[in-house]
Design a protein around this nucleic acid. Structure first.
Ligand SMILES: [Mn+2]
Ligand SMILES: [Mn+2]
Ligand SMILES: [Zn+2]
Ligand SMILES: [Zn+2]
Lengths: 170, 170
DNA sequence: AAGGAAAATGAAATTCATTTTCAAAATAAA
DNA sequence: TTTATTTTGAAAATGAATTTCATTTTCCTT
């Protein structure tokens, strides 16, 4: 039977999750399976809140707390990573991604584009060394207008708008 | 009378503040003067909370809210800028600084070191362009162990410790 | 299969930095 | 002064993140 590359990777990760759980004396549950599956299927950069909503549409009775805790768990187990961009929300993306990467973030439409640049990595390391630093992680984000939004930037930024909405909600 | 370069710059900035206030129909107050002075004297990367405490020692009766609002005001007027590092606290530093700069942050002692690297700036711009982005700002932070802390990292991170303290306070 | 210990769940409560509210005080123009 | 406008600051509100705890579920052992 045909199997896409992506679904293969997902099942591989789910296998890894299952093993890690057993190894640590933790339990496999319906909730963890649903949450992990839905999360790993996604394109990443999702908040616990949004994943909770996404799941809520298809599956009944999975609480926000469990989604939140499962994302934390996946992070602990090396299957996810946390990202905090300028809107100060904690987002998660599946790991291991192709490789280390940084982000371009559109302040109009919120689109997040990933990039990887070895020259940049080496330069960062060089700078770090110059100051006698030992680098653990780095964060590199470029904020601006994406290709699509570049020429329409007289409108109110949807990204800013979302922040405003988030504030006014309820 | 002798005047240091730095105090000259501070009075220059305070002059600018005074003018901006008048221009916008805002008022000059004792609080704003004290807060601006104390802030501009500092080395930057200070939270509203810490500036409030620092001021509290010398001057009586300046509320946290006013410190908070004055830092926001200075930011609006282009005399300060907000920075949010991995501990998720909003810090402020005087502007205009020498130039645009990025940060090296020690995850052991919390020391923040500034650096400026033109090669890095150009490379970022190049990457942005490749994706058709129009760059507005960028964020580049390197987290690791500083020169001092590099060889003592078996101890509990003071940076982490502060986060813990912050949590347990009260 | 039961039994039982340990872990997981989820609604509700808590935390904590940030932001807003509002009544009283201060500022500055007339 | 007088008066309109702004500022102040204590207290309240906000909201995302985290914790609590009673109940339920898992899964290991008889
Ligand atoms: Mn990413
Ligand atoms: Mn700085
Ligand atoms: Zn866009
Ligand atoms: Zn250090």
């Amino acid at each position: 039977m045909y199997k896409s590359v992506k679904s293969f990777k997902i099942s591989e990760k789910k296998e890894r999750l299952k093993n890690s759980l057993k190894e640590k004396g933790l339990k496999s549950t319906r909730q963890r399976d649903v949450i992990a599956t839905e999360f790993l299927r996604g394109t990443g950069h999702i908040t616990a809140e949004d994943l909770y909503k996404k799941i809520g549409r298809k599956h009944k009775g999975i609480g926000f707390t469990t989604v939140y805790r499962t994302l934390k768990l996946l992070t602990t187990l090396g299957l996810a990573t946390e990202r905090v961009f300028a809107d100060n929300l904690t987002r998660y993306e599946p790991l291991p991604a192709e490789d280390h990467h940084d982000h371009l973030i559109c302040i109009n439409c919120g689109t997040i584009t990933e990039f990887e640049n070895m020259k940049m990595e080496r330069l960062q390391e060089k700078i770090s060394n110059e100051f006698g630093f030992y680098t653990v992680i780095h964060k590199m984000e470029i904020y601006g207008y994406c290709k699509k939004c570049k020429y329409h930037s007289t409108e109110v930024s949807e990204y800013e708008l979302n922040k405003a909405k988030a504030k006014n909600k309820k």
